Simulated scan of single mutants.
Amino acid sequence: MTPPTPQGELFLLDSPLTGEIRGERSLMAFPFFALSKNAWMKPLAYATGDVSIEVRPSARGVATIYDKEIVLYIASLMAAKLDQGAAVAQDFVFTAHDLFSVTGANHSARSYARLADALERLQGTQIRTNIEAGGEGEEGFFSWLSEARLQYARTRSGDKRLKAVKVRLCDWLFRAILRDRQVLDYASTYFQLGPIERRIYEVARSTCVEGEPLEIDLATFRLQIGFQNHLANFRIAVRQIAAAGAIPDYHLQLIEEAPADAPVPEGEPGRRTGRKAGRAKVIITRRAPALTEEAQAEAGIGEQDAPSFL
């Protein structure tokens, strides 16, 4: 239960977060946010046979994958309340200090300025989708936050001191968490990842939930990740990420085929050249969990014999 706030406070805090970081499955699976740290001013669109998403920017741009940290934090607060059997509402009040502590941001003045910008983008970005939430669909646009305010007090010197952040979660996401209960936990290292790595992890986490691998062609994968640049650039990024083994809990493999019409240099029958890239596909599998020391002892496995799952 939320402890009472000190005398003089006019609100009760939902923070600090006591559970894991969790997110709604649809927000993991599909590209609702721009893969950028800076303002992204162009609309985003995603469409398959079953799913359509349209995202329009505010005056400060489209909400980014880094702004999404706030949405994940709110979803985690809500999920923790539901786990405790507590009543939940769409309004959440939390401290920026706890948000920064959870997401790994520093507590500098710059972080507080970025928080204000992120809240404005989350409130201003317009989303339209045919994905139903809580058994209901919506036509027209909605924003991630229908209300976002920074509440502050004045110090004796007259400076502002941020007391809390107050937000109201949109109906669509609130219904999805409350009724569908398709909420999945995130790896503890998620906030240390770059934007593309974050999206690859989210797609893997939301798709490989039953242990089944995901096999998808690179062009389709690019659309699901929400990568806005050319496919060639995405291929290079995925190749580097796969080589680095940078996705927590998952093994990423890029399978590339040489183009059939590429010329073969004389004396090098195994090598093809040519500027046209061949087809490629991505295979993602969940890593087997590493054995604990106790499990290794029970299995009679010494440290030097412990299997590697990398």
Results as ranks from 00 to 15, higher is better:
66 Y>M: 03
135 G>E: 01
98 D>S: 04
235 R>M: 00
149 R>L: 10
101 S>V: 15
245 G>T: 14
218 L>V: 00
159 D>M: 09
115 L>K: 05
72 L>S: 03
87 A>W: 08
301 I>M: 00
179 R>N: 12
182 Q>N: 10
183 V>R: 00
270 G>V: 06
10 L>W: 13
133 A>K: 02
19 G>L: 13
142 F>H: 09
90 Q>S: 03
194 G>N: 02
206 S>I: 07
238 V>K: 11
71 V>L: 02
274 G>F: 04
34 A>Y: 02
148 A>S: 04
77 L>D: 00
35 L>Y: 00
104 G>P: 02
227 F>K: 01
238 V>P: 11
35 L>R: 04
296 Q>S: 12
11 F>M: 09
38 N>S: 14
14 D>C: 08
189 T>M: 12
297 A>P: 06
87 A>Y: 08
121 R>G: 01
127 I>M: 05
178 L>E: 02
110 R>Y: 06
237 A>C: 10
177 I>D: 12
293 E>S: 14
113 A>K: 11
258 A>V: 12
197 E>A: 06
161 R>K: 14
44 L>H: 07
244 A>S: 11
249 D>R: 12
15 S>V: 01
198 R>M: 11
39 A>E: 14
172 W>C: 11
278 G>Q: 08
15 S>N: 06
62 V>W: 01
186 Y>R: 07
4 P>M: 10
117 D>Q: 14
297 A>E: 08
297 A>M: 06
238 V>Y: 10
96 A>Q: 03
89 A>I: 13
247 I>H: 12
178 L>N: 05
21 I>F: 08
172 W>V: 09
219 A>W: 10
200 I>C: 05
169 L>N: 02
303 E>M: 12
63 A>R: 01
277 A>S: 13
31 P>K: 02
32 F>L: 09
171 D>I: 06
62 V>T: 03
52 S>K: 10
59 A>F: 07
54 E>G: 09
78 M>H: 04
128 R>I: 11
188 S>W: 06
240 Q>F: 10
251 H>W: 13
185 D>N: 12
173 L>C: 05
46 Y>E: 03
16 P>Y: 07
284 I>C: 04
64 T>S: 04
7 Q>L: 15
265 P>T: 09
80 A>N: 09
78 M>R: 03
58 S>T: 09
54 E>F: 06
1 M>F: 15
222 R>D: 08
149 R>E: 13
75 A>K: 05
115 L>Q: 02
127 I>K: 00
55 V>R: 01
159 D>A: 09
301 I>P: 02
294 E>I: 06
167 V>R: 01
285 T>Y: 02
283 I>W: 11
256 E>W: 15
262 A>H: 03
207 T>V: 02
294 E>R: 11
128 R>P: 15
162 L>V: 07
81 K>V: 07
75 A>C: 08
203 V>E: 01
206 S>N: 03
173 L>R: 00
218 L>H: 06
206 S>P: 00
136 E>K: 10
23 G>F: 11
139 E>D: 13
171 D>W: 07
104 G>I: 01
141 F>D: 04
274 G>W: 01
97 H>M: 12
17 L>Y: 04
60 R>V: 13
233 N>I: 15
71 V>W: 04
74 I>V: 15
219 A>H: 13
274 G>Q: 03
